[in-house]
């Protein structure tokens, strides 16, 4: 089981993140959940890159086994995408707060009901 320690953490974080997104009514807290969810996937990718006994993927004297650099590069891209998503989402929340005066989902839905 100890070998799969990383993956246990990944699954745990993934479920926690998704749960927060669904259970929270506060728009900012939902985003925190979304961020945890995304981060768990990043950790998953990085975990798959590890080769047992391998060093960091930099050519040095004496090293013969290297970890796989590709997933790390992929995740670098995914992190950038995540940042873009998060900043757009926060900008939306700001505008929602200005338009509705609240960031609570039920309060917002309540205000739009009559129309």
């Amino acid at each position: 089981m100890a070998d799969y320690y990383n993956y246990l953490v990944v699954v745990l974080l993934m479920v926690i993140g998704l749960y927060i997104v669904m259970a929270q009514a506060n728009l900012v807290k939902k985003l925190i959940g979304l961020n945890i969810f995304q981060t768990s996937v990043f950790i998953f990718y990085i975990s798959t890159a590890k080769v047992n006994g391998g060093t960091a993927p930099i050519v040095v004297e004496g090293a013969e086994l290297y970890s796989n650099p590709l997933p790390q590069v992929l995740i670098l891209t995914a992190i950038v995408v995540g940042i873009a998503t998060m900043s757009l989402a926060l900008a939306l929340v700001l505008r929602i707060k200005r338009a509705y005066g609240s960031v609570e989902e039920n309060v917002i839905l309540e205000q739009d009901k009559p129309c």
Partner: peptide
């Protein structure tokens, strides 16, 4: 202003969808 909330909801669903794909 409902466009803002619609966009937010779309963002949440869309990001979860894209992350599942990932």
């Amino acid at each position: 202003r409902r466009a803002l909330f619609a966009a937010y909801q779309y963002l949440i669903v869309g990001t979860i969808g894209a992350t599942f794909f990932l």
